[in-house]
């Protein structure tokens, strides 16, 4: 039976109080949002904080605000995202990403802030303590070597969040709050391509808010690859958003790939192939080819490595065809083994 290790539990009701506790407790403290990532990791002794600072009682982090910008409190659950008509109609990529995270029970508990800060994952890391001890641990926790690529100087654990690529594609900003003040950064700047130090924020900073431009003239989408139509983390995520001129020319766009490295990766060459062009089959094929080049999957998740790399171009194609207006529902339910129309009912 997997029991949690001992820890001190604190549940402040104000963000400022949470930030103060985090500052005073230092590296021994960890933040708890929905607990769906942290608690499994604690049960497997991947993370063993002396103090857990729960954010669920912080009311301010549980609000969605709609004014000049759409603001989503980091404590908003993924189910609440899925239930938001505003997000579904204006930020479809985020809605589709949230709807495809894990399972209904997990979405009821998990928060958007937690999903953005999700620990990176690896077949050699997401194992029980006994399992990891048997291979003398890995460099992400307690060991020296990266078992995926023993010559690698850095950890290659995989960014496995669905909402991060979707929100990077939507040009989201996030608010980081610390004891001595707060700052807004672009979400893409929150991530570093390093399986251990995958977040650039200071330990004492709390992700409290996600901010999106209220734009009517952008379209967005998210495509997820996983073995089953539920529960599984992404093996590949493709988020794409675009702004079209009246004649269908792409004025601006962002293609982002998830789960193929330790951070969500922008496919800048795909963007370049799309901007200034209409989404013809040829243009889409060129962008998909260019976009899939940033996918550098390692052999540390589900499915075979070569197929995962190959399928990245296909997924970029599906995403861009959906942005173009093709009816991709049948393809989506075949690929995703999941009926998105039935989510959130």
């Amino acid at each position: 039976m997997l029991r949690l290790p001992r820890f001190r539990y604190m549940a402040p009701t104000q963000i400022s109080e949470a930030a103060r506790i985090l500052a005073s407790e230092g590296a021994d403290a960890m933040l708890l949002a929905g607990g769906t990532d942290l608690f499994p990791n604690m049960k497997r002794r991947q993370q063993t904080p002396a103090t857990v600072v729960a954010l669920r009682d912080v009311e301010r982090m549980r609000e969605i605000g709609s004014g000049h910008c759409l603001t989503i409190g980091a404590g908003i659950t993924l189910t609440e995202i899925v239930q938001s008509d505003l997000i579904r109609s204006r930020h479809a990529g985020l809605w589709q990403a949230a709807a495809q995270v894990a399972s209904p029970q997990l979405r009821n508990m998990a928060t958007v802030g937690g999903n953005l800060c999700l620990d990176t994952r690896c077949n050699y890391y997401d194992q029980t303590l006994e399992w990891r001890k048997a291979i003398d641990f890995c460099m992400k926790k307690d060991g020296e070597v990266c078992w995926v690529a023993p010559g690698s100087p850095k950890c290659l654990a995989v960014s496995s969040t669905d909402t991060a690529p979707a929100l990077v594609s939507l040009r989201a900003k996030v608010k980081l709050t610390a004891a001595d003040g707060d700052r807004m950064i672009r979400l893409e700047d929150l991530y570093a391509n390093d399986g251990i130090h995958y977040l650039t924020k200071d330990h004492g900073e709390i992700l409290t808010l996600v901010e999106l431009d209220q734009v009517d003239d952008w379209k967005s989408t998210y495509w997820k690859l996983r073995r089953r139509g539920s529960i599984d983390f992404p093996v590949l995520g493709v988020a794409a958003s675009a702004k079209f001129a009246d004649d269908g020319t792409v004025e601006n766009c962002r293609v982002v790939l998830g789960a193929v490295s330790s951070a969500p990766i922008r496919a800048l060459k795909a963007d370049a192939a799309l901007i200034g062009n209409r989404l013809s089959d040829d243009v889409i094929a060129q962008a998909a080819e260019a976009g899939s080049k940033v996918a550098k999957p390692m052999d540390n998740t589900d499915f075979t490595l070569h197929w995962r790399k190959k399928v990245a171009a296909r997924f970029v194609t599906y995403a861009l065809r959906e942005l173009r207006g093709d009816d991709m529902r049948e393809m989506r339910s075949r690929v995703a083994r999941h009926d998105l129309e039935a989510v959130g009912v």
Binding site: A102, H338, D339, E341, A342, V343
Partner: peptide, 19 residues
């Protein structure tokens, strides 16, 4: 409780977190 007459797809989705 929230959907007294669910479709098969809605049932499948609602139970997709149970193995």
């Amino acid at each position: 409780e929230r959907k007294p007459d669910p479709s098969r797809a809605e049932i499948t989705e609602a139970l997709s977190g149970n193995l």
